[in-house]
Design a protein around this nucleic acid. Structure first.
Lengths: 334, 334
DNA sequence: CACAAAAATGGTACCGGTACCATTGGACAA
DNA sequence: TTGTCCAATGGTACCGGTACCATTTTTGTG
């Protein structure tokens, strides 16, 4: 009736009627039922976002940008975490689809075959972030994990380090970490670094695990010169353990991290890291989803937002700052 | 028709029919529409959760427990962040109510009057966490911020410190921080500590701000002996700045934090802090919501899950460990 | 074999909105 | 005065499920 119109298109209704409706709404404490509205109008103004975990703030800072963009446009975010399990992700996608979200945001590009199929058949706008998938489900915005890890390892090589260790977090179901490891190996090979597999290990994403791993590494290879951690928390854990053991950073052991978290800049010594444009990725992902929802032809697009190596004290050694290898680029692969 | 029944109550349907339906579902890629389902059945199996911010992982670790409990019972979480603005919170509550969530989870007990009114009139099960409100909207589970801050300050007093500074995060719209500040002042008064207001300041919740604040504090009061920060990030920032300036902790300046984050245990020196049972609070909050939803009479209940002071190196000084004042309690106020 | 009880299936009226069309009543121009 | 057009309002058929009752089929038992 007229009430619905008053609430949705007030300009089509006379001021008196508008006032009467407003009064009734106030009097009864009426709250429109968005379920009914969504059912009838076939749009929920909701985006389903799946991130691996909420336990660290890194995935969260991606979604922060997403949230900003969406809220500004009257959209909401339904958040789910997959705990790095593609099956859990699949269940969440099913759940989101059954709630008829208008768009889906996925972290990374490792999904089950059924997930990809469901998403494609359903035709719901989808964006994958933090990777540059060969075969995106729909759209993607991220950066090259391979290039970033390669660049850090290369930086170590150019600084004269020959024995560079690598700590990654679990690579299972995580193509970002896999790519970083590949980038490391590529640089190790290219620059003739020590390719002892005992220099490489997988660590849980927490400070304590990183500390213990450093101890183990030092037992295996006491002669290690540099350590690249594909996560700032890992790097922080290792750095703090080095501090406890009186290992001087970077004189005895250079350390670099990955992510560009706040803590990297505040540790002593401050931590060299790879800065990821997390907020920008979230914002752009949101914008791309909105564009697709509004019928703009942006499907199949993969956007590279680049990264930047920030050199700090933990890898200074005796090389000038000019040798920082930054690579912040914005590229669109159609 | 029979299809609906097959999907909801398969045991009421013959195996052949069940198989036929399953085949059709597979063939068409049918995904049930939960909007329609919720509209008709009047339940969404969704809890709306509002947290201040996702930027740090602390609120997230509360909701982790919530999520665990809910998922186990087939419920989902709709997450919103208020950025410490009661008006934003109100808008989110309205949004959640219009989506007919089955329950609402709020952080803290600072809400607009309209929020309280909406929630109460609507009668939706609601739980407030991290505080022990005098007048809960419905249910609450948390701990006494006042007691915890009082206990830490008392600990400093008993250890012989007379000049104890306080860094809180912004107290505006945040009764938790306000309570902690009150607890501090109460202990200052009771134990005759230096009550110079210049010992107290508000800091943004980040490492850099904390570092700068420490510098300012040392200029105002170079004779300060101990520093209590009502957040581990603040404490970490101060501790790292102290490290940079060659200030020995705890010999020159003792530092205590609040929250019991992972980083507290890994800094050098390790940080004394107040451990909050975050996960347990989330789990219990979820359980209470489920109980209310299922008609169990748990309304109006406020549960105190206590806290625990964990003494570490940053406040060791020359007092024995026995003087740690822990207070982990579980109390129910009807 | 007859009949009652139980199991399986089908029919229909909602849930609370939106979309779209129909109707009413002025205002204004010819 | 009459016709046209537009603003404002009202009516109705959905959206895709669930709840509940009615009907049909199967099973069990004396």
């Amino acid at each position: 009736m007229t009430v619905s119109r008053t609430l949705s298109f007030p300009h089509l209704v006379s001021p008196e009627t508008r006032e009467k409706v407003a009064a009734a709404v106030r009097a009864t404490g009426y709250i429109p039922n968005r379920l009914a509205s969504s059912l009838a109008s076939n749009q929920t103004r909701t985006i389903g976002a799946i991130i691996p975990t909420l336990r660290n703030s890194i995935a969260a800072s991606f979604t922060d940008g997403l949230r900003d963009t969406l809220r500004r446009n009257g959209y909401h975010v339904l958040l789910g975490n997959s705990e790095f399990e593609p099956e859990d992700e699949e269940a969440l996608v099913t759940e989101f689809l059954s709630r008829r979200v208008d768009g889906i945001y996925l972290t990374g590009s490792t999904h089950t075959e059924r997930t990809r199929q469901m998403l494609r058949e359903n035709g719901v706008p989808t964006v994958e972030i933090a990777s540059l998938p060969q075969d995106p489900v729909d759209m993607a915005v991220g950066f090259s994990n391979y290039d970033a890890a390669y660049a850090v390892t290369r930086m170590f090589a150019k600084q004269g380090y020959a024995k560079v260790a690598l700590f990654t977090t679990f690579t299972k179901n995580n193509e970002r970490q896999q790519e970083r490891q590949k980038g490391y190996w590529a640089a190790v090979e290219e620059f003739g670094l020590d390719s002892d597999p005992r220099l490489v290990s997988e660590v849980a994403m927490d400070l304590k695990a990183a500390a213990q791993n450093l101890i183990a590494l030092l037992e295996r290879r006491p002669d290690v010169e540099a350590l690249f951690c594909t996560g700032d928390f890992i790097a922080a854990g290792a750095l703090l353990e080095a501090q406890r053991r009186g290992i001087r950073v970077p004189e005895d052991l250079a350390i670099a991290g990955f992510d560009g978290l706040e803590i990297a800049d505040n540790l002593n010594p401050s931590l060299t890291t790879v800065q990821i444009p997390r907020h920008e990725i979230g914002v752009l992902a949101g914008q791309m989803l909105l564009d697709r929802i509004n019928g703009l032809p942006v499907g199949g697009r993969v956007v590279d937002l680049g990264f930047e190596i920030i050199c700090r004290e933990s890898t200074a050694k005796n090389l000038p700052r000019e040798l920082t290898f930054t690579s912040l680029q914005t590229e669109v692969h159609e």
